[in-house]
Design a protein around this nucleic acid. Structure first.
Length: 153
DNA sequence: GCCAACGTTGGC
DNA sequence: GCCAACGTTGGC
């Protein structure tokens, strides 16, 4: 069964343009167990990913990507120089995992968070729930289709 | 830059 | 196992 996801990133750190340039990239730095478990247990190659820009002028969904490699250990956790170094994660017993994500398309216009809050079709969407801080979360098929339709894809 | 919401850590 | 303290996320 194909699944649908939303993945957040700060455009100043890694934007949709960066992914377009790289074509496919490993999604390192996830240090939250819920997000990790989604990657490890549920993400499969070919799953669709809504690409979300956070912490910026107009937060919202800016494009489409897809999972291009299933979960494997996040080796950046082993690097003492890396920003998300975690001494409790080792190569023998990795604590953190990542998937690879491939570029699909950039939307002509960002589908803003505030806009999505106005859409009755998206009622109950996880992204819109109060206090939500997950950087990786599942999206229901109907919600995904609605967003795709708006984006013209 | 502020701050609400949430997750994690660690003392007890 | 409780919970206070702390750190982080991310909208505004």
């Amino acid at each position: 069964m194909k699944r649908y996801w939303l993945m957040k990133t700060e455009p100043e750190t890694y934007s949709i343009d960066d992914l377009k340039r790289d074509k496919s990239e490993h999604w390192d730095g996830i240090r939250n167990y819920q997000a990790r478990n989604f990657m490890m247990q549920d993400m499969r190659v070919g799953d669709a990913v809504l690409f979300y820009h956070s912490n910026c002028k107009v937060p919202g969904i800016i494009g489409l990507a897809k999972v291009s490699k299933e979960a494997y250990p996040d080796f950046t956790a082993w690097d003492p120089e890396a920003k998300y170094y975690d001494p409790k994660s080792t190569s023998d017993n990795p604590r953190w995992f990542m998937v690879d994500v491939a570029y699909v398309k950039t939307f002509k216009e960002v589908i803003s968070l505030s806009g999505m809050r106005e859409m009755p079709e998206l009622d109950g969407m996880r992204l819109l729930q109060k206090g939500n801080r997950l950087s990786i979360m599942p999206v229901e098929e109907g919600q995904f289709r609605h967003i795709c339709k708006l984006a013209g894809c």
